[in-house]
Every structure is written in structure tokens, then in C-alpha cells.
Write a protein that binds this DNA or RNA. Structure first.
Lengths: 408, 408
DNA sequence: TGGTATTTCTTCGTCAATCGAACGAACTCG
DNA sequence: CGAGTTCGTTCGATTGACGAAGAAATACCA
């Protein structure tokens, strides 16, 4: 009994908000565009476009960046987005580390800082650590508090849409009594957005990586845990309870080892970092006291180590079972693999694609590109910052109204 | 590099269109509501609401339906939707039959007609059959052509968003040179919408069945083929290539029989109608010349036949593997089972839920309701009609402008 | 029973945002 | 160097929503 999308009503002011938002997005996307061109594309009248652009210029969001090429008459003045007018803070609370980035409005990292920390078991300490790192970043760039739009936080837990600050008691039991969103909001007094790490990896890829230009992709984070994030119609899709994308607990081998979740042969027990390094210890021998790491595995694969290659082949085969199901069920335009191990590139993609081909309809396979991420280890923290950007590009009022415009 | 939803720009007329559309939806959803209540909920001014309601009344879409209860002052005049003002045509091209329904704007079937036909191999004959049935329905109710909003067509093939009239050459090779959408459009000269049968079953459930009230569900059609349809944020999700929901070809048993798609142990080879009836023949013996049908199986299960129960148990177990993956990947709010066999209800749901519990995270499991459809065999044809309704509720201009208003 | 407060809905003047036409500025092309 | 084109702005007209005020209908209370 549901019907058309429940949009908000519009009055005269809402009309302006909607149109100016649309223009802001267009200018952001196009990087440089003339008023005349905007008028042609939006079918708004030239006078309206001029008025709105003046508004945006006043707010310090866009500015003139010289003249374009003539189309047979007066040369157009190009309008560009002020990428550096505001800053975004992105925080990644990983399983065992905290990463903070300070980016501009084009996802470029201005400062970053990172610290190892046992996040899972120590909420208070982790938050304190995050606070220090954030302050460090803000001070390093002498960023005035006024110019920070907001803060995005990536957490290693599903996030329920109705209570975005609460962690899953199953995944992070120690965090039971903490509300992450509230804590950051009260500590830093700015808008805070919280989401799952894989979801934010997906958002990052959609904005800045392999999926840029598209609106639908799935990102798979290969690390200690295996998680996926879906972007559907340009938005993170969280599912009814926020657990969409929990690909790590898909059973792929009914004879596999027992998983913490209670099931047997979950993907994560077979290709999670722990499983990989254990297998590496068996096949490649111990390196130093602590045995081989994922980094060693990547290194081994690069230098042609047969054992490393074998491990990654096996990983591709298992992962293919889950990805095959994904293609049949969701048919995403792109599947992006992230996490440290994904840096081996084709070495993982080849066996993966072969495995998927055995399990997915050729049609869905043909429509889907499977690639590895090129954004590196900051992808998730940047994705967190991107969550703020996405919100602000939708709702202009999130950009602080600044008196002295810093432009770029 | 994508940002805020690419909405259209708004001028004064667009403002009215948006607001009147919103109001129309609200009246449709609420069935009866006063102008004052609309004004409170939409935060539109009372004068504006009155003006828009007058518009809608003029167009024959809504009408006064008496007075409501007073809240301490003048009694409100309730406005209701004219459910019977227009008609919708829904066509289902099944694997071996053609069904046509004529519904009102509340999904109620006014007339229906159905014929067996070998649809897969005979495009021309099927279309001709459909034409006859449609004309039959239109004449039976003496529906003036003017009052038909449009036609929805369900096809047993994935539908590519970019070419909605073309069938998949893999699934329906004989239909290669036919454009279904074009054919119906030129034959009946009205708006035509085409989609996959499972997608339309899902839409039907979302509007009129188990999912009504919600915006996210997955429907699984259990028949000769096994297909799923996803409703995400109130909309059919088709994926990049239109093959989202091809759950039938998820491999659930690596030792299973070979499937037409080239893989082994696909869900459809294990729990498709053919597999079920074959298994029934083994366990229940032949009934008459042709062996047991799905109907016999349902009947057997109802009357407590042990063999039938065993077959359905097995079906639930296999289906659970696929549904478990679905819950982990997509975390829908509701999973609805459709198709003839689903009428056994709990008999299928029990083993299914047990199987899913072994394969899905308890979190996603807890958030998801798994139920059987109650809409019966017309669900898909009605879903096709609903596709037209959904489009028209979004874009009022799809409703024909009629001079003499037929109301309800 | 009658008066007052409340709620509903309409009327009418005001306001805000867009549009369209006209205009000046800047440029290309022949 | 002039004609024609394109770009951006200015200004009056139009449109739709809003707000205040008023009329109608009803509940509540003395």
C-alpha cells in the first residue's frame, strides 16, 4: 500500500532550495561550466541561473574561474566549485586501528593520522584516541572550526538505520553502552554521520574510485572480516536492519571450519586474514617469530612465490561462490574488491572471475565488471568523509555560512 | 563522482505538479482524509490545500465522501480517492498461459480472462491471444477506452532497463525479433510498461499483499522457474542489466543435476516444478497417465501424505540455502513466497526457516519476516496493472483527462 | 438554551521565485 | 570593419504559496 516517493512539499523557498541544490550538484560534477550551459541543461531561464549562481557565489561555494571557448559569440564565464572552501573529517574505527583524514570537498586528503589501537575491546580508549587524532589533524592544517562541514565515522559493525550510533552487540559487545554518533557530536559539536566500514568503502569507490560515474556498485572489503557494501541508485543500501552486505557469513563450504557466528564454513573462516595467514604459515613456513602476514602474502605473490599464488588462487575460488550469488541476486554494475590483499590485482581477479563464471548466469556476468580498488588503505576513512559531502551536496544548508570566504 | 539525486528543476508549474502529486498520493494512501488534516501533515497552508483538492476533484481523481468526526469544532469534509474512475490492464505472459486482468485503481479485479498457450515458442500466437483476451475484458465491462490509464505486461524473462520490450535471447530465443512493449503500444495506443514476472509479483505483494505498508521486500516465485524480485525503497530494483533476482540459478548442490544454464545444481533443478513432480512420481507413484502435478503435491501435503511432506521438507531445505544468502546480502524486511506450491503455507515455511537459521546471521534473520503469498494466482497479472498505477501516482499527467467523471 | 471557543474551509491581498523579452557586452567570421 | 551570434543582466509579468481575516459548523459550558 505504498506509492510514489514521499517527497517533501514545496513552497517558493523550497523551489529555490531545490533548484540551487541542483545547480550546486551540476557545478560540482562538471568542475567547470558556464551559466549559459547550465541554463541549456536544466531548462531553467538564464535569468534564474544567474540569480542562483550569484547566491552560491555569495555563500562561498562556487566562483568564476575565467573564460571558456567561444561558440561563435561572446565567451562564456566558467563557474567552478570551491573545492577547498570547506573541510570534511573522516574517521575509521578499524578492528585494530584508528585512522583520521581531513579532506577537501573533492575527496583529496589534506592531513591524515593513524594509530594502532585495540578498538574492539576498548571503546573509551578508542574514542579518546580518535579525539586526539582529529584534533591533531585540525591543528596541523590550522583549519578554522567554522570551515568543517561535519564528520563521518566508519565502524566495524552493522549500523541499524534507526539507531546509527549503536554498535551490534554481537559483533562489538564491549561497545554496548556507547553511542558513537552522540559521543562525536557532543565532543566536536558538528554534524556526525556513522556507517559501516564496507558501506563507506563502497561510497568511496562510487565517488572517487572504480565506480565513479555510476550509481550502482558493490564493494567487498577483504580483511580480518569480509564485508560488502551496496550502492543502489547512488545511495548506500543498508537493508531493513542494517545488515545488508554481511557477505562474510555466507556458507561456502559445508565441511568448513566452525565460525564465531555459529555456522560452519562461512566465507570469512576460509578467506579472512586469519585463515589466509594460517594457510600461509602451513605452505610458506614461519617468517620470524610471528609467522607470515597478509603483507608477506602480497609480497610473495608479486615475486612469484608458488605457495602464495596457490593461496590466492584458492581465495579467488571461494570468493567466487559468494560473488556468483551476488551477481544472480543483485546484478550490480561493478564489483570492487578492497582491503590489503586486493592489491595483488589480476592475480586474485583471474581465479575469481573463473570461479564466478561457473556460478553466475552469463548474462549477469557480462553486465558486471569485477575490479580491484585503487584507492589504497585510506579508502574507508575517505568514504566516511564522503558521507558528509554527499549529505551536504543534497542539503546546501549543511555547509556552514562563513563570513570570510576561503576559495580555491 | 555522483552526488545528490538528479531531480528535475522546478518552476511555478512544477511546484504545483509536485504538491498536487504529493496530495494525490496521500489521499490514495489514506483512503479518506480531510483538507485540514492534509494541511497539518504536509505543512502546506490550508488555502493551498483547498486549491489543489479542487484541481484534483475537477480532474475526477478525488471527491468528497461526507463529513468526519469533529475535533471540537466544525466537522471536516473527508476527501476520498475515486478508486473506480479509471481502469488498469494487467497482462501476464506465463511459460504456458496468458492471463489478463482489468482492475480499478485499488488493485481490485473487475474482469479476468485466461488461456493456455505455449508462450515460449510462439510469440505471434501469444500476442494475438493476449490481444483477444484484452479486448474481451474491455468489452465485458464496457470500459470506455478513455478511462484506461495504461497496460502492464509481465514476461517470463529478465528485462533490460534500457530495452524493456526485448526478451532475453537465452531464456526466450523464439522472441528474438519481437519488441513486446512496441507491439502492445501500437496495438492498443496506450502507455505500456513491461517487466519481469517475479518483479511484478514483488510489486503486487508490496502494494496489496504481505508487504503492504513497507518499502523493501523480496518476492520469490516458485514455479517452473524460480525467480525473485526485489522492491527497494518502494521501487522495483532491476540491477545493472535487469537480471537482479535470478535466484533460480544459484548453485546449492555442487553434486546436483546439470542445468540448462550450463551450471550444476542450480536451485531450479532441485525445487523447480519439474524437479518436484519428478520426485513426486518417484515417491508417490503415478496418478493417471501423466503422473502427479504440483496441485497433487499440495493436495497430498494438505491431507497428510508422508511422501508429499517429505518432498516439501526437502524443498524448504534447499530454498533455505538461497534465502540465507539473500538475507545476508540484502537483508530485506520481508521475504514473500509465491507460486502454486506456496499455498501449503507453514508446511513449507517451517523447514525453510529452519534451513535459513542455519545459514544466516541471527541479526538479519531476526529482522526478516518470511511468509507465503495470499494473493493467489492472479498476483502477477495484478502486479503488471500495479506498475501502471505506480507510474500514474507519480506522474498525474498519465491519468487521462476525462470530461465526464466516473466516480466511486 | 444561548453564548463562547474551536475547528474547518474559503477569500483576498501579499510575497517570492521563475520566466520572457529586451538590451548591452564580447566575440567570430567573412 | 560590420553583421551575426552568444553570453549574461535587467526589468516587468506571471504564477503559485502564504497569511490574515472571515464565514460556517460544531462542541462545550454556564
Amino acid at each position: 500500500m505504498r506509492a510514489g516517493t514521499a517527497v517533501l512539499t514545496v513552497d517558493a523557498a523550497g523551489m529555490r532550495a531545490q533548484n540551487s541544490g541542483l545547480l550546486l550538484n551540476m557545478i560540482w560534477r562538471e568542475r567547470q561550466i558556464s551559466r549559459a550551459e547550465i541554463a541549456r541543461r536544466t531548462e531553467l531561464s538564464p535569468s534564474t541561473v544567474s540569480a542562483i549562481v550569484a547566491d552560491l557565489e555569495q555563500a562561498g561555494l562556487v566562483r568564476s574561474i575565467g573564460a571558456g571557448v567561444s561558440r561563435g559569440g561572446r565567451r562564456p564565464t566558467l563557474i567552478g566549485f570551491c573545492d577547498e572552501a570547506f573541510s570534511l573529517v573522516g574517521v575509521e574505527l578499524g578492528a585494530s586501528h584508528v585512522t583520521v583524514v581531513l579532506t577537501d570537498l573533492r575527496g583529496r586528503v589534506r592531513t591524515q593520522s593513524k594509530a594502532s589501537h585495540a578498538v574492539r575491546g576498548d571503546p573509551e580508549g578508542s574514542l579518546q584516541k580518535a579525539k586526539e587524532l582529529i584534533q591533531e589533524c585540525l591543528e596541523a592544517e590550522r583549519v578554522p572550526r567554522r570551515s568543517v562541514v561535519g564528520m563521518g565515522v566508519a565502524v566495524p559493525s552493522p549500523v541499524h538505520p534507526a539507531a546509527p550510533g549503536k554498535m551490534s552487540p554481537l559483533i562489538l559487545p564491549a561497545w554496548k553502552h556507547v553511542d558513537v554518533k552522540d559521543w562525536f557530536q557532543t565532543t566536536f559539536d558538528m554534524p556526525v554521520f556513522v556507517d559501516n566500514d564496507a558501506n563507506l568503502g563502497a561510497l568511496s569507490e562510487c565517488f572517487w574510485g572504480a565506480g565513479s560515474g555510476g550509481e550502482d556498485l558493490t564493494y567487498i572489503k577483504l580483511a580480518t572480516g569480509i564485508g560488502a557494501g551496496h550502492i543502489i541508485h547512488g545511495d548506500v543500501y543498508r537493508g531493513a536492519g542494517g545488515t545488508a552486505g554481511e557477505i562474510g557469513h555466507i556458507p561456502v563450504d559445508s565441511n568448513g571450519p566452525l565460525c564465531v557466528c555459529g555456522l560452519r564454513g562461512c566465507l570469512v573462516t576460509l578467506i579472512g586474514s586469519t585463515a589466509l595467514t594460517e594457510r600461509a604459515r602451513e605452505l610458506m613456513g614461519t617468517r620470524g617469530r610471528k609467522g607470515p602476514t597478509v603483507r608477506d602474502l602480497v609480497e610473495g605473490a608479486r615475486t612469484g612465490d608458488a605457495a602464495a599464488k596457490q593461496i590466492i588462487d584458492g581465495m579467488g575460488a571461494y570468493l567466487g561462490i559468494a560473488v556468483g550469488g551476488l551477481l544472480n541476486l543483485l546484478n550490480p554494475a561493478i564489483v570492487v574488491l578492497g582491503g590489503e590483499i586486493s592489491s595483488v590485482g589480476e592475480m586474485l581477479l583471474d581465479p575469481l572471475r573463473a570461479s564466478v563464471r561457473q556460478r553466475a548466469l552469463s548474462v549477469s556476468m557480462a553486465e558486471t565488471r569485477i575490479v580491484t580498488s585503487t584507492l589504497g588503505e585510506r579508502a574507508i576513512a575517505v568514504g566516511a568523509a564522503t558521507l558528509v559531502l554527499q549529505a551536504a551536496l543534497r542539503d546546501r544548508s549543511l555547509f556552514p555560512t562563513q563570513t570570510v570566504g576561503r576559495t580555491a
